[in-house]
Simulated assay, not measured.
Amino acid sequence: MALKHVTSGEVAHLAGIDDPAARTRALARTSSFEAIHLVVRAGESLPAHKVDGSIILHCLEGHVAFEAGKSPDMRAGDWVYLEPGTPHAVRGIADSALLLTILFDAPAFRTDT
């Protein structure tokens, strides 16, 4: 069964980490991006992996170990951007909620102009 994504203009409620209903869920997906409410409980891990697009990870609540180069960990309010194909992993130090956005980069986009 496909997950229900929100439609343009529809409000999605992101449950706080203390809410038993808090869970990882896809929020929206278009041809240019995907947004995911990522819930990582203390002791849980997302093993090292990489994605084809750029990613933006915003820690909303909690504390995670974030393994990707310069960022050893993230706490509430922290934000990080990764270039496409950058290996990364996440491990919950405390129960945590994050907003993950994957940008499906257009091949013709250049940042050096």
Rank of each mutant, 00 (worst) to 15 (best):
A28Q: 12
P84I: 04
H88I: 02
V90W: 01
A94K: 08
D52K: 11
G16S: 11
L99P: 03
H88D: 05
P20Y: 09
F66G: 01
H49Q: 13
L46Y: 07
T24I: 09
T86I: 02
R25T: 08
T30D: 04
R41A: 13
H5C: 08
V11W: 09
D18G: 14
R110N: 01
L38D: 03
H5L: 07
F104K: 00
D78G: 02
D73W: 03
L60C: 09
A94G: 06
E34N: 03
D112V: 06
C59M: 10
A26T: 07
K4G: 01
T7R: 15
T111S: 03
Y81E: 10
F104C: 00
I55S: 00
G43A: 08
T30S: 05
V64I: 14
A65F: 01
A26S: 07
D78S: 12
S54P: 00
L27D: 09
M1C: 03
S45I: 10
A15C: 13
F109C: 02
A22S: 15
V64E: 03
S8P: 12
V80E: 07
S45W: 01
G69N: 07
T7D: 14
D18V: 12
M1K: 05
D78Q: 07
V80W: 03
G69Y: 11
A65Q: 02
A97I: 08
L82I: 04
S54R: 04
T7A: 13
H5W: 12
T111I: 10
